[in-house]
């Protein structure tokens, strides 16, 4: 992703402070990405409505509402507004890839991922 073109808003949803802030800060080094974070499903819903992200990076195992649940709701409530969703899980279980497809995610990744790999995936999904 080069430095020119429009700004993309990314929402990072993860209950782990280090991961959430790390992801947000590392990705925000890229000049065309604007970052926002949420630590649970409730906050994610709020940020989704106010921040209007182009892409959501979503953790799976979180207290309260899990990533697949959040993913499904975001899809249901996004309406004509098209958002890309990447599931980024630290606990890959049997069948979770299939589950992510059912929930409507665009991509399923397991932690840990390099910044560059993440950027490549984000670029692929958002195009330009």
């Amino acid at each position: 992703m080069d430095g020119s073109g429009s700004i993309h808003r990314i929402l990072v949803v993860d209950d782990d402070d280090d991961v959430r802030n790390g992801l947000a800060r590392a990705l925000s080094l890229h000049p065309r990405l604007e970052l926002c974070t949420a630590s649970d499903g409730f906050e994610a819903g709020y940020q989704f409505a106010s921040f209007r992200p182009h892409l959501v990076l979503l953790d799976v195992v979180m207290p309260g509402m899990g990533g697949f649940d959040i993913c499904e709701r975001l899809r249901r409530f996004s309406g004509e507004y098209s958002v890309k969703i990447i599931i980024l899980t630290g606990f890959p279980g049997h069948g979770s890839n299939e589950q992510s497809i059912v929930a409507g995610a665009d991509l399923y990744l397991t932690k840990p991922q390099d910044v560059n790999t993440l950027l490549t995936h984000i670029e692929d999904l958002l195009g330009d």
Binding site: N21, G22, L88, F91, K111, P112, V115
Partner: peptide, 19 residues
């Protein structure tokens, strides 16, 4: 599973520092 999260955080912070 437990170390995936910290490693993810480390990788991100390494990228931040490196920049």
């Amino acid at each position: 599973h437990e170390i995936n999260n910290p490693i993810q955080a480390i990788l991100m912070h390494l990228a931040i520092v490196e920049s």
